[in-house]
Design a protein around this nucleic acid. Sequence first.
DNA 1: ATCACTTGCATAGCAGGCTATGCAATGTTA
DNA 2: TAACATTGCATAGCCTGCTATGCAAGTGAT
Lengths: 149, 149
Amino acid sequence: MKFEKDKSAGYLANHVARLFKRGLEARITPMGLSTGTFPVLLELWQRDGRTQKQLVGALGIEQATMANTLNRMERDGLVIRRKDDTDGRVQRVWLTERARGLQTPAVAAAAAENARALSGLTIPERAQFLDLMRKVIAGWQPPPDSRGG
Amino acid sequence: MKFEKDKSAGYLANHVARLFKRGLEARITPMGLSTGTFPVLLELWQRDGRTQKQLVGALGIEQATMANTLNRMERDGLVIRRKDDTDGRVQRVWLTERARGLQTPAVAAAAAENARALSGLTIPERAQFLDLMRKVIAGWQPPPDSRGG
DNA sequence: ATCACTTGCATAGCAGGCTATGCAATGTTA
DNA sequence: TAACATTGCATAGCCTGCTATGCAAGTGAT
C-alpha cells in the first residue's frame, strides 16, 4: 500500500506541533518557563486556587501528566499546592508572585510565536487553520478498538 | 493581554498531535510498534540500508532523537545497524524480516486512523487541512532570536 | 461504627522529543 | 606525516506526554 508521510494528517500534525514547541521554547526559556507549564499558567492566570481535577478537565491532559507538571512548577517556584479546607484529598493550586509577574511577557511571547508561525498563511487561511484544528479536536471520539472494554 | 488557548495555533497543534498519537498508538501497539518508529519505518520500507544522517534529513528530527529511536528499534528487533564498508563512522540501517512483515498491517492502521480522525471534516476540508499544515511546515524559518549568534 | 466503594492525587516507568557533549573515524593542511 | 578540523554517531540529562498502580481521604450501606 502506498503511504506518503507528507499526505498523512497524523505525521503532519506531529511535525507542526514540534515546530511550534521549539519556537515557543526559544522565547520563554529565557524567562524560566517551559512549554508544558504554559497551558496550566493560562488557566491559573484567569483564576487560581483551582483543583488539579479542574485543571485536568480544562486542558485535556491526563491526571498523571498534570501532577508531574505541577511538581516541576512547584519546584521552579511558579505555584504552590495547598490542601482544600473541607476535602483533604483535594489539592488547590495557587500562583506565586513570580508566576503572576510572568503573565504579560509570556503571553506576548506566545502571541508573537503564533503570529510568526502563521505568517506564511493569508488572513483567511489562518482562521481556517484554527477552525479545522478545533473541528478535529471537537469531533474526536475514542477509536473503536481503543480499550475494548 | 487576552489570550485564549483555543485561539492559539500552538496550543491547538499540540492538542491535535496528541490525539493523533494516542489514536495511532491504540492501533499499532498490538503489533509491537510505537509511534516514534513509524516515520523511520516508512522511510526504510521504501529503501533500507540508509545512513542515520539520511534518515535525519528525511524526517526533520534531531540526530540524537534518531539515535535513540534506532536504539529502541534495534532492541525490539525491527532494524539492525551495520557500519558502512568504506566509512567507519557511518551506520547503515537495515530492516529485519519482522519489520518487513509489518508493513501492510501498520500502513493500514495509520491510514485507518487518519481517516477516522478526519471523518468530521468534509472532503475539501480534509485536503485543505493537509495543505495548511504543509504550508506551515514549509514556511517555517528559525525564530529571530532562536540562538542568536 | 464498620466495611466496601469511590475519588483525587502521587509515583513508577516508559516513549519520544530536545540540547549539550563526548568520541572515534575521516579529511585537511602545513 | 603530524596536528588540527570536521563529520557521524552515541550518550547524558531534561521535559512532556502516556498507562498502570498505590494510597489516603471521603462516601455509602448495613
